[in-house]
Computed example of a mutant assay.
Amino acid sequence: MKPAAVLETALYVTDLAAAETFYGDVLGLERIAKVEGRHVFFRCGQGVVLLFNARATIEPPAPGARLPVPPHGTTGQGHLCFSASADEIEAWKNRLEAAGIAIEADFEWPNGGRSIYIRDPSGNSLEFAEPRIWGL
């Protein structure tokens, strides 16, 4: 047996309100859940992007909690890559630049495929890449 796909990906942010605006308004993701001061979750294709306040998720759940999710979290900059076609990458580049978001890197991989990189408001590295960079 092996896992079939990644269902959810988590990033840890320093400002949930700024993250919610960025991922919802700039990236256009649909918000599906929110707990003030703790997390905001967005649908992305067949998966979910989880944005957590790291300080809130390192606390263990209260005894008898309805959802006994173990503590988790990290600090520092994380990374997430969104799948995009070559045409979509160009459209994303134009949209992001129009929104005042700097493109940190834009290049073709040696084995084929293009990536662009930006930063979210918490400094996480976000990439838009053609799936063929991984032979997909």
Rank of each mutant, 00 (worst) to 15 (best):
residue 2 K to Q: 13
residue 5 A to P: 05
residue 11 L to Y: 01
residue 12 Y to I: 00
residue 12 Y to A: 08
residue 13 V to A: 11
residue 15 D to F: 11
residue 16 L to F: 10
residue 18 A to N: 12
residue 19 A to I: 00
residue 23 Y to T: 03
residue 25 D to Y: 01
residue 25 D to Q: 12
residue 27 L to H: 04
residue 30 E to H: 08
residue 31 R to K: 15
residue 33 A to D: 15
residue 34 K to P: 06
residue 34 K to C: 15
residue 34 K to G: 09
residue 35 V to T: 12
residue 35 V to S: 11
residue 37 G to L: 00
residue 41 F to M: 13
residue 42 F to C: 02
residue 42 F to Q: 02
residue 43 R to E: 12
residue 43 R to M: 03
residue 44 C to K: 01
residue 47 G to A: 15
residue 47 G to Y: 07
residue 48 V to E: 09
residue 49 V to L: 15
residue 55 R to V: 13
residue 59 E to F: 08
residue 60 P to V: 00
residue 63 P to G: 02
residue 64 G to W: 02
residue 66 R to T: 13
residue 67 L to F: 12
residue 70 P to A: 11
residue 75 T to A: 14
residue 76 G to R: 09
residue 79 H to M: 13
residue 81 C to T: 13
residue 82 F to W: 04
residue 82 F to C: 00
residue 85 S to E: 11
residue 87 D to L: 14
residue 88 E to L: 06
residue 89 I to R: 02
residue 91 A to E: 15
residue 92 W to F: 13
residue 92 W to I: 06
residue 93 K to Y: 09
residue 94 N to A: 15
residue 98 A to C: 08
residue 102 A to D: 10
residue 103 I to G: 14
residue 106 D to V: 00
residue 106 D to N: 11
residue 108 E to K: 03
residue 109 W to I: 10
residue 110 P to H: 07
residue 111 N to I: 11
residue 116 I to N: 07
residue 117 Y to S: 09
residue 117 Y to E: 01
residue 118 I to P: 05
residue 118 I to F: 00
residue 118 I to A: 05
residue 119 R to D: 10
residue 121 P to E: 00
residue 121 P to K: 06
residue 122 S to H: 10
residue 123 G to T: 05
residue 124 N to L: 04
residue 129 A to C: 14
residue 132 R to W: 08
residue 133 I to W: 08
